[in-house]
Write a protein that binds this DNA or RNA. Structure first.
Lengths: 140, 140
DNA sequence: TCTCTCACTCTCTTTCAGGTAAGTACAAAT
DNA sequence: ATTTGTACTTACCTGAAAGAGAGTGAGAGA
């Protein structure tokens, strides 16, 4: 996931305008960031962390690790750092020993979760359709 | 992208219900397919093809290849096959020489594009916010 | 006869995301 | 004195994804 030669306006306007001229070049800076964000968002662990934090409010590192079965420490740290960098989560360190670090979603993180609802709902609604399409395609 | 231990209902309900109990296990078959679909959808080339076909209506293989700068024949074929299998595009072969094959979105494909609008719009709306968050995080 | 087109398909090679496992710091509990 | 808990970091390794590039078949045009 590195580049998408179009932007939200393009695909969404196409719905309303029916005949849009082929998408021309846009601000490459915006383009790059949109693509990056989509890439980030589409990431498996990011989505899971987003969901778990959304459901539980505030969790510390080990609690997250336990809720997200299968994630390695490395990926958990890595993903949390990216999300923190992007302003999706806050990381609160309590300077005690043993360490205590809390993670929670920012408003931005919550809004992303909300934005993704559409796709999740689509996926659930169209499960059967896709399953059937595959059966037909595979010829049983 | 292989497994997500939750479903659309979980994350979307959380918005409304505020205090949802931790997500318990669901039908693993559904779970698997939702995850697969999200993985498929989140794929870079799938999103691009979705957009290009949505904007242009009907295109043949070489036209797609030309519109989607940077894609290899291999990935174009592969992605189109997957999308066809999932019922997102139709593939019409005209039995002439040299070959002529048309691709177009199905209703399912279009609805997926629509579902994804939310994410694209979010990304565009929050570009600046994220950019600033990164600058702060990186300390300039 | 030679070349060109289209839509692939096949093989080879490289890249890299992500897993495993070990290490670190420090204090409190045993 | 040794173990435990917490939140990481670091180094190494592997499998899967993706890029490069050559090959294919059959008719139409030069």
């Amino acid at each position: 996931m590195t580049s998408l030669p179009f932007d939200a306006a393009t695909i969404c306007q196409a719905k309303k305008v029916a005949k849009t001229p082929p998408p021309e070049v846009l601000d490459p800076r915006i383009e790059r960031l949109v693509n990056e964000l989509i890439g980030r968002v589409a990431d498996k662990w990011t989505m899971i962390i987003l969901e778990v934090l959304d459901a539980h409010g505030e969790l510390r590192f080990t609690q997250l690790a336990r809720k997200i079965e299968g994630i390695s420490q490395k990926m958990l740290t890595q993903t949390l750092r990216q999300m923190e960098r992007d302003g999706m989560v806050t990381r609160t360190v309590h300077p005690i020993v043993p360490p205590h670090v809390d993670y929670r979603l920012t408003e931005l993180g919550q809004s992303l979760g909300a934005a993704f609802c559409g796709v999740w709902i689509w996926a659930e609604e169209n499960l059967e359709t896709v399953e059937k399409a595959r059966e037909v395609f595979d010829g049983r």
